[in-house]
C-alpha cells in the first residue's frame, strides 16, 4: 500500500466518521427531549391507573433503599405513595409498581417489566390477577396455596411468577408497617 493510498484512506474515513457523528448528535438532540417526556408520560399513566383519585404526583424519591413517588389528593393532602419494587420471578427480576395509601392498604399493582415465560408467567401483567391484591393486608396477600389465610388465586401453571408478585407486595407492606412502629 502506497503512502498516498493510506492518506486518502484516512481522510475518507475521517470525513465519513465526522458526518456520521454530526448527524447522530443532531438526531440525539432532536429525540432526547421526546424520549424523556415519553418516559415521564408512561410513568404518570401507570401512577394514575393505580391512583385514579390522585391529583398531583411528586418526583421520584429514594429513601432507606426504597424508591417511590408521593401522591397528593385534590385538597393537597398526602393520599399515598407508589413504590417501585423488584421481586425475583421465575425467569429473572420482575419490576412491580405498588400503590399504597396512608393506612397501608394496597391501592393497585402494575407490572413494569419481567422476563417470565410467555403465555404462562407473562400473565402476571393481567389486570384480573393484579386486582386481587386491592385493599388487602398481611397474610391475605399470600397465594391461596401458600397460606391458610391467603386469598390470591395463582395463575395456572405459573405459581412461582404469581408468588413473586405476592411476595414483593407483602414484603413492602411489612417493611412499611415496621417503619411506622
Amino acid at each position: 500500500m502506497s503512502k498516498k493510498e493510506i492518506i486518502t484512506g484516512i481522510i475518507v474515513l475521517l470525513i465519513i466518521s465526522m458526518t456520521s457523528g454530526c448527524l447522530l448528535s443532531w438526531v440525539y438532540g432532536a429525540t432526547k427531549p421526546r424520549i424523556d417526556e415519553q418516559k415521564k408520560i408512561e410513568a404518570a399513566r401507570i401512577n394514575r391507573e393505580i391512583f385514579p383519585e390522585g391529583a398531583k404526583f411528586s418526583d421520584t424519591i429514594t429513601e432507606n433503599g426504597m424508591t417511590y413517588v408521593e401522591v397528593y389528593s385534590a385538597d393537597g393532602g398526602l393520599a399515598g405513595r407508589v413504590f417501585d419494587v423488584t421481586s425475583a420471578g421465575y425467569g429473572g427480576p420482575v419490576a412491580v409498581k405498588i400503590g399504597i395509601d396512608g393506612e397501608l392498604r394496597i391501592k393497585g399493582v402494575r407490572i413494569l417489566s419481567h422476563t417470565e415465560t410467555p403465555g404462562l408467567g407473562s400473565k402476571i401483567s393481567d389486570i384480573g390477577f393484579l386486582d386481587q391484591f386491592k385493599d388487602k393486608f398481611g397474610n391475605t396477600l399470600c397465594l391461596k396455596k401458600d397460606s391458610a389465610e391467603g386469598t390470591v388465586d395463582a395463575i395456572t401453571g405459573a405459581t412461582i411468577s404469581s408468588r413473586a408478585v405476592a411476595d414483593g407486595i407483602k414484603k413492602l407492606q411489612e417493611k412499611l408497617s415496621r417503619a411506622e412502629k
Binding site: 425475583a88 420471578g89 421465575y90 425467569g91 429473572g92 427480576p93 415465560t117 412461582i160
Partner: peptide, 11 residues
Amino acid sequence: ALMGFKGLFKL
C-alpha cells in the same frame, strides 16, 4: 432441553 434451566435459581 435448555428451557429446563429457566427458574434454576432466582436473580
